[in-house]
């Protein structure tokens, strides 16, 4: 758990790139990443979730049926700078692997940090979606990312 957590609760209007928005409850409380697990999800080419493993369901706090069919941006925490996701999409659009540290928003408003890797899924030469695998990051990388993202917001 982060030493900076205050447990404070606030409401933030999150605006997404497709012009939709939602009022989200944000709780300043970190949920620690479980040891030994990988969070795995897949999306279609537009970012709509098509597969969620058990670790994803447990860590996000959503039920499987709440995740499937919605855009992956449901996990986006307002502390994450938009430029980080632009880099992600620019990279995978070129058919390359993207890796980075991401602060994710849970359904209950708390957060968890991950080291995420996203790759395009190519079948018979066609892009059919993306696979994202998240693993446990180190505290030092979280600290570095927090400092960096603060300057990019």
């Amino acid at each position: 758990m982060s030493e900076h957590d205050t447990g404070s609760v606030r409401e933030v209007l999150i605006k997404y790139f497709d012009s939709t928005e939602r009022l989200a409850k944000i709780v300043d409380r970190e949920v620690p990443y479980p040891d030994g697990k990988l969070i795995v999800s897949r999306t279609d080419p537009s970012g709509v979730i098509t597969h969620a493993n058990r670790a994803f369901i447990e860590m996000s706090g959503y039920a499987r049926e709440e995740l499937l069919g919605v855009n992956h941006y449901i996990l986006r925490h307002p502390d994450m700078p938009a430029v980080a996701f632009k880099d992600l999409w620019d990279t995978v659009a070129q058919g390359k692997k993207w890796q980075g540290y991401v602060k994710n928003l849970r359904k209950d408003g708390a957060y968890y940090w991950v080291k995420a890797t996203v790759i395009p899924n190519i079948r018979n030469g066609e892009l059919v979606g993306y696979t994202s695998v998240r693993r446990k990051p180190s505290r030092s990388k979280i600290k570095e990312s927090e400092a960096l993202y603060e300057t990019l917001r």
Partner: peptide
């Protein structure tokens, strides 16, 4: 199979 291989590629 493709899913497993994609997952391994991320690792």
């Amino acid at each position: 199979t493709e899913f497993m291989i994609d997952l391994i590629d991320t690792l």
